[in-house]
């Protein structure tokens, strides 16, 4: 799961092959990785890849703002 998320973030936001520049606890917001529309891309990707819907109230950094938080959120939604 973590590797899948990392690959998505690297290829679609950092436009790099996987490297050590991002650790799984890094905040996407603080590091400027997810920009003003990036969060919508993350949601589209999760909905298509894992087959669940994200509600508006779930669009909060606690769910979406790092690799670890995304992984936990996806596990909760699909568990």
């Amino acid at each position: 799961m973590h590797e899948q998320i990392r690959q998505f973030i690297f290829e679609n936001f950092l436009f790099e092959a996987e490297n050590n520049a991002l650790v799984n606890d890094d905040s996407f917001l603080d590091k400027g990785i997810i920009d003003s529309t990036g969060v919508l891309e993350v949601i589209n990707w999760m909905e298509e890849t894992f087959g669940f819907q994200v509600d508006d109230v779930e669009l909060i950094p606690e769910n979406l703002d790092s690799v670890n938080r995304l992984a936990d959120f996806i596990i909760r939604k699909t568990g």
Binding site: L29, T37, L59, I60
Partner: peptide, 14 residues
């Protein structure tokens, strides 16, 4: 639409 659909926290961060 993409801007309007954002959560406030992301809009404010920008």
């Amino acid at each position: 639409p993409a801007f309007q659909g954002q959560a406030n926290v992301y809009r404010e961060a920008f």
